[in-house]
């Protein structure tokens, strides 16, 4: 299948639903090893993003991603705003020029998103940041030739869970050094919601 405009809109809406539902959980995770604002910031940003996408009409997935990117950058704040905003902006650029998005194009988009996150945040996989979910997801996408909802959900979930045993190198949790071990990375959890929502959209779209 290919991602159509309606799929992309549903993806953003489902992500927003998960983030609103888990807003307090995300903030609690962040309080444990950060500054406790991740849930609030993501909830504010995705609420605005959905407000934007539901009040606009689109002919391409790229334009949706671009609006999401600009909204997240200007509404989220903290580190998450630039990182998620950059990710969506890079995905938007990678899928530009096509009405719908093939698996191959989407994979390229995720790769570009990761490059953007690395450039902006100067982190790498294993530093206990959202890259710890994005990078395994990219590897999985690269190994497959079509969208597979279950493996997307499973890969993102196990990658998210594995951040618990990792010591933070980047982000505010890095100040805690070994005390950051034993806690999930909040950015990886919100990234899991993002990919789990996409998996749901793919299942419905089959």
């Amino acid at each position: 299948m290919e991602l159509q405009v309606q799929h992309a809109l549903n993806w953003i809406e489902k992500t927003n639903e998960k983030i609103q539902t888990n807003k307090d959980y995300l903030s609690a995770l962040d309080r444990a090893i950060g500054d406790g604002d991740h849930g609030l910031n993501m909830a504010r940003g995705f609420q605005e993003a959905v407000g934007k996408t539901t009040s606009s009409s689109y002919t391409s997935v790229s334009d949706i991603f671009k609006d999401v990117a600009m909204t997240l950058m200007s509404k989220v704040g903290g580190a998450s705003g630039p990182l998620y905003g950059t990710a969506f902006l890079k995905m938007s650029m990678a899928v530009k020029g096509e009405d719908s998005v093939s698996h191959e194009r989407f994979t390229k988009g995720v790769e570009e998103a990761i490059n953007g996150i690395i450039q902006r945040g100067k982190a790498k996989e294993g530093d206990k940041t959202l890259l710890d979910v994005w990078t395994p997801v990219l590897r999985m996408l690269q190994e497959q030739s079509d969208f597979e909802a279950d493996s997307l959900e499973n890969t993102a979930k196990s990658a998210m869970e594995s951040t618990k045993d990792v010591m933070a190198i980047k982000g505010r949790a890095a100040y805690l050094k070994e005390r950051s071990i034993g806690h999930l990375d909040p950015g990886s959890v919100s990234s899991y919601y993002l990919f789990a929502s996409l998996a749901e959209v793919l299942k419905e779209g089959e």
Partner: peptide, 12 residues
């Protein structure tokens, strides 16, 4: 001024 304990956004 960002939100409480949250960096302001690039546009601001």
């Amino acid at each position: 001024a960002g939100e409480v304990f949250t960096s302001p956004t690039p546009d601001q």
